[in-house]
């Protein structure tokens, strides 16, 4: 960041010669593409997630949660224009409660029951879930409401509806939440009459009905964080890539690999695989 600012400032004073401008562009490019040390959040998940901590003890998890619960409210960030997240252009979130397999959760979870707040391996129910969020240090009640299983709860205990999950995510990922609310992150939904027409599924991220994903103007209906990210395992990808273009006649691959002259073209039609 500082490198970019320095480079740009350097040209502001004098005459922006062609060479100098090239240097700026180069610097920008390098800064953008260089490994961003210390900003692992901004990197795509190129590198496989670090293995879960070996000592992933219950005590450690409880300590992390206790620490988080004492954090100051971080949703006070502002945009370059000085707007807070509450001043973001008006939006609604596409409801997705009806897509939840087991909702309402109180069908099974007895409201009067005593939830087990300790990390353990689940054997009877929810065995399909993998808890990779936060390196495996979170247990259900970091996000779910232990007092009312039909809602989520903030770290301070405020109930949050399942259709407003971004408020839970934004407690830690407040910068991302900001981007999302203003349009720099995530995807828009169209004004769906039927929430079941939601285009994205949890794990495979399959685009079911492209015609209904939003408009660049008009009503802003955003997809909630959990429409794309599995909250229990939030990293997206990897994906198998779509087929490469055919090598043009007379050209060769830069890596010298054999030219797939008979390689099939794109699977025609849909964007699905």
């Amino acid at each position: 960041m500082s490198r970019i600012q320095l480079a740009v400032r350097g040209t502001k004073g004098g005459v922006p010669r062609r060479g100098a401008r090239a240097v700026v562009v180069l610097a920008l490019g390098m800064a953008v593409l260089a490994p961003v040390a210390g900003h692992s959040d901004s990197l795509p998940p190129n590198v496989p997630a670090a293995a879960a901590p070996a000592e992933n003890t219950d005590a450690e998890a409880q300590a992390v949660l206790a620490k988080l619960r004492q954090c100051p409210d971080a949703r006070a960030g502002k945009t370059a224009r000085g707007q807070t997240i509450d001043q973001a252009p008006k939006f609604t979130v596409l409801p997705r409660k009806s897509l939840l397999t087991y909702y309402p959760c109180t069908q099974c979870h007895d409201p009067a029951g005593q939830p087990n707040e300790h990390i353990r391996v689940l054997k009877d129910m929810h065995t399909d879930l993998t808890f990779e969020h936060g390196g495996g240090r979170f247990w259900c009640y970091a996000c779910h409401d232990s007092k009312n299983m039909d809602t989520l709860a903030s770290l301070r205990g405020t109930p949050v509806d399942f259709d407003q999950a971004y408020k839970i995510c934004g407690q830690c990922h407040f910068e991302r939440e900001m981007d999302w609310a203003f349009g720099g992150h995530g995807k828009r939904a169209g004004a769906f009459p039927d929430p079941r027409a939601v285009p994205l599924t949890h794990d495979k991220l399959l685009v079911r009905d492209r015609s209904q994903i939003g408009h660049w103007r008009g009503k802003r209906v955003l997809l909630d964080c959990t429409a794309c990210h599995n909250p229990h395992r939030p990293a997206i990808g990897p994906f198998p890539p779509s087929p490469p273009p055919l090598v043009r006649t007379g050209l060769s691959r830069p890596d010298g690999k054999p030219i797939a002259a008979t390689a099939p073209g794109l699977p025609l039609g849909s964007t699905q695989r």
Partner: peptide
């Protein structure tokens, strides 16, 4: 497909076809 840290379009590869993307170290 750019090798991590570079913006050298000359040596970039647009025929890349690994089993899965993203590949570690590539952008």
């Amino acid at each position: 497909d750019l090798v991590h840290g570079g913006l050298d379009l000359d040596t970039s590869d647009h025929y890349f076809d690994p089993q899965e993307v993203p590949v570690a170290g590539h952008r």
